[in-house]
């Protein structure tokens, strides 16, 4: 098992958060804590890059929902990039594929907003 590692950086469109490793009951709290430190401006896009996430259980899903609430409150947009197949399957079962916009990778997620501007 790989430990969780989360990094953030700022793109022109807004913050980009990358989740690397396993997101489960033991460490989902870390992500929740980190989310509390992120500030979003109205109209920004919050990109959560999952392309290197190896595992996600229901606690991880809860953390993603918290990220969604955060964006909604700030009137910002939230998108998931590079969702692994297993996680995508879970997202479909719980219906979250309907409330998150999904992009194949981080670059397309950032680019698509630029094009929209």
């Amino acid at each position: 098992m790989s430990p969780l590692k989360v990094t953030t950086r700022d793109a022109e469109t807004g913050p980009v958060l990358e989740i690397v490793g396993e997101l489960d009951y033991a460490n989902a709290g870390e992500l929740r804590d980190l989310l509390a430190t992120i500030t979003l401006q109205p109209g920004q896009r919050f990109v959560v890059d999952l392309s290197r996430m190896e595992f996600c259980d229901s606690s991880g899903i809860t953390a993603l929902i918290a990220a969604h609430s955060l964006a909604q409150e700030a009137q910002a947009d939230i998108v998931l990039a590079g969702v692994p197949a297993n996680t995508l399957r879970i997202l479909r079962i719980v219906g979250l594929d309907q409330i998150f916009t999904l992009y194949p990778d981080r670059d397309s997620a950032v680019r698509s907003l630029d094009e929209r501007r």
């Binding site: 929902i65 479909r92 079962i93 719980v94 219906g95 309907q98 409330i99």
Partner: peptide
């Protein structure tokens, strides 16, 4: 498919 988690949005 398409049924959402209960309780996360005001209407689901």
């Amino acid at each position: 498919p398409g049924g959402l988690l209960v309780g996360i949005l005001p209407s689901a």
